[in-house]
């Protein structure tokens, strides 16, 4: 029987469990004991102000920070001392903040860069069916795409790899409302197809349209957790946390 956590709407298997995660950039201590978890099939957000440690948490999960301590268990496996590429191969797909599109690669090369890690990913053809704009521009330099197209590309290239667990770092940042809606649609589709998603957001209105649960991050710690069902009653509290 699955243990009961946070009145979770899901009773899926535990996908990711982060316990007392500490991380450093050189001398400066940036994460001070983050603890949270995600069940399979859930969409969970990390909400918080700029510099609260949300993106750092993602980078830390991916092993991209030089120093980290604590415990990161993914599918029952401890990853705290794994190098970055092994973490990815366990089945985690990372969509970085500011999208991480390579300017020296064209769109097709950007799309095919992340190696296929698991069975069941989309083929390049299927990606192009899903994102026809990318097909048209497949020979353009990656960074010549519009912000929205770049975000589609950043998500699309991860869908090719076959991983079912995604880290999306502020996918809506700096995008027009129409594009934000599209991205919301993509996240819904992915959720329906059984993907598990950890999302970093500053925009809680957007987050509330896609997520099951929210963690509030402040000063490198989780300071609150909110069920999406309760978000209407927690609006005032959230405004306080996010300073909006």
């Amino acid at each position: 029987m699955p243990d009961i956590v946070d009145r979770s709407v899901h009773d899926g298997r535990l996908a990711l469990k982060v316990v007392d995660l500490n991380a450093w950039y050189g001398e400066s201590h940036v994460l001070h004991g983050m603890s949270f978890d995600i069940r399979e099939g859930e969409v969970v957000t990390l909400l918080g102000r700029n510099g609260a440690g949300k993106s750092t948490t993602m980078r830390s999960i991916m092993g991209m920070l030089p120093t980290r301590k604590g415990s990161i268990i993914f599918n029952g496996k401890e990853m705290i001392s794994m190098p970055s590429h092994h973490i990815a191969r366990e089945g985690i797909g990372y969509v970085p903040e500011e999208r991480g599109i390579f300017s020296s690669l064209n769109v097709q090369e950007n799309l095919e860069l992340p190696p296929v890690l698991k069975k069941g990913g989309l083929s390049t053809q299927e990606v192009y069916v899903l994102f026809p704009a990318l097909l048209e521009r497949r020979n353009s330099q990656g960074t010549k795409l519009s912000g929205g197209e770049q975000q589609m590309l950043a998500i699309a290239r991860i869908l090719r790899t076959g991983v079912k667990f995604l880290l999306l770092d502020e996918p809506t940042e700096g995008l027009a409302p129409v594009i934000v809606q599209q991205i919301g649609g993509i996240i819904h589709t992915l959720k329906e197809r059984g993907y598990t998603i950890l999302l970093v957001e500053q925009n809680f209105r957007f987050a509330s349209t896609v997520a099951d649960r929210h963690y509030v991050v402040e000063d490198g710690k989780i300071v609150d957790r909110i069920m999406n069902a309760d978000i209407a009653s927690s609006t005032e509290k959230l405004r306080g946390y996010l300073g909006v």
Binding site: M64, P83, Y94, P96, L105, P114
Partner: peptide, 16 residues
């Protein structure tokens, strides 16, 4: 070419 731009990200995609 990608690793010259952002080695950390390329590694986070699973490349050694």
């Amino acid at each position: 070419r990608a690793a010259i731009e952002r080695p950390d990200l390329v590694q986070a995609f699973g490349i050694n």
